[in-house]
Design a protein around this nucleic acid. Sequence first.
DNA 1: AGCAAACACAAACAAACGTTTGAAACGTCT
DNA 2: AGACGTTTCAAACGTTTGTTTGTGTTTGCT
Lengths: 210, 210
Amino acid sequence: MPPSSTVDRILDTAEALFAEKGFAETSLRAITSKAGVNLAAVNYHFGSKEALIQAVFQRFLEAFCVRLDEKLRDMADDEVSLEALLSLVSHTSVAAQQGDARRVAIFFRLSGLGYTQGQGHLRKFLRERYGDVFTRFLMRLQQAVPDVSPMELFWRVHFALGSTIFTLSGMDSLRAICKADFGDDLGPGDVDKRLIAFLAGGIRASVQAS
Amino acid sequence: MPPSSTVDRILDTAEALFAEKGFAETSLRAITSKAGVNLAAVNYHFGSKEALIQAVFQRFLEAFCVRLDEKLRDMADDEVSLEALLSLVSHTSVAAQQGDARRVAIFFRLSGLGYTQGQGHLRKFLRERYGDVFTRFLMRLQQAVPDVSPMELFWRVHFALGSTIFTLSGMDSLRAICKADFGDDLGPGDVDKRLIAFLAGGIRASVQAS
DNA sequence: AGCAAACACAAACAAACGTTTGAAACGTCT
DNA sequence: AGACGTTTCAAACGTTTGTTTGTGTTTGCT
C-alpha cells in the first residue's frame, strides 16, 4: 500500500459519505471512524473540513480534466458529432475513475451538491482552475452545432449540465423506480445512452421565434 | 396583517435562507433572528426543524398542484402540444407564487436540495401526497408525444426535471455570467423560453439505435 | 546509535446546534 | 373582574460540531 494510506482512506471515505449525506450532514467523526483513522488526522493532513472537501473534488477533477484535454487534443481538427462529444465526457468520467461506475455517480452527486451549496466559492475555484479546458470543450461543441448561436449554446450547455448532474446524482433511485414500474432493469450504460440522446436533441433544438 | 404573523414570518424567512444556504447550513437561530421572532417559536409552532422544512415545501406545492390540476382538467380532451404543457408548468409555478419570480427560483432551488439531500424521505412524502397530479400530467405528456415509449418518456421527464431544477436553482448566477460574456441581459422569461425549447427538443429526440 | 522531522493518538476545547423549560404577556371568554 | 387557553420570551439544557493541544510513536537520515 502507498506510503500515506491515511490520506487516501480519508479521501475515499469522505467522498462516499459526502455523496451519501451531503457536506454539512457528514461529520469529521463519521469520516474518521469509518475510515479507521484518528479524528485529528483530517486537520493534520488537510487543515480543515473545507479543505478536505476541496481535496476530494480536486482528486477527481484533476484526473478528469487531464484526460479530457488529452482526448480533445487528439481529435485535432477533425469534425466530430455532437453525440461523440457528449459520449466523450461520459467515457472520460468513467475512465478517470478507473471504470468504477459507482464512483462516477458519487462524483456527479458531489458536483450537484457543490454547485448549489456553499455560496458558490467552490464554483469559482473550479472555474479558475479548469476553466480553459471547459472553454476548449465548448469550442468543439460550437463546431458540432454551428447553427446554434454562442449565447444559445451557453444556455443549452448549462441545461444539459443540469440534466446530467441531476440524473447521475439519483440514478440508483431512478433505476429502481424504472424497474418497478416497467420491469426493465437498465444498466448504467443504458441510462447514459438515453441521456446523451436527450441532451443532443435539446442542444440541437431549433430556436423558436419569440 | 394576519392573526398569526409569526408563523408566516418564519416560513418566509426559512424559505429564503434554506434556498440560499441549504437545510443543514441554516440554523434555527439564523431564521428566528432574521424573522424577528423568538427562537422557541419554531418548535412551538412547527414542532421541530424537520417539520418546518416540510411546511415550507407544502405551502408552495399545495398552491402549485391545485392550480396545475385545475388547468389540466380545463384542457379536457383537447390535444395540446408538448411546448404548451411545458409552458403550463412554468406559468403555474409563477402564478402559484403570485408572480414573484424570485420565489419561484427559491422553490426550485429548495426542490433540488430536497431531492438530493435528506435520504429521500422528502421525496417519498411528495410522491405520496401529490403523485396523482404528477401521473395525470405524465399522461398528458404521453398524448403529446405518442412516438416516445412510456419508459423512454419516464427517463426523459426526469432528465427534463434535472435541467429545470438545476437551471432555476442557479439562474441568477447564470444570467450574470451571460451578461458578462455576451452583453445580453436576459429576463427570467427569456430563460424560460430557451429552457422549454431545449426540453422539448430533448423529449422529442428520436431514439437512436443501440 | 542518535537526532529531528513526520505522524498517530487520546483528551480536551470553545462554539453552535436543536430542543426544553417555566414564567410573563396577551386576548377571550363568562 | 377573574380565570382560562394561547402565544411570547429569556434562559438553560444536553449534544454534537470542528479544531487544538500535548504526548507518545514511528520513520528516515548521517
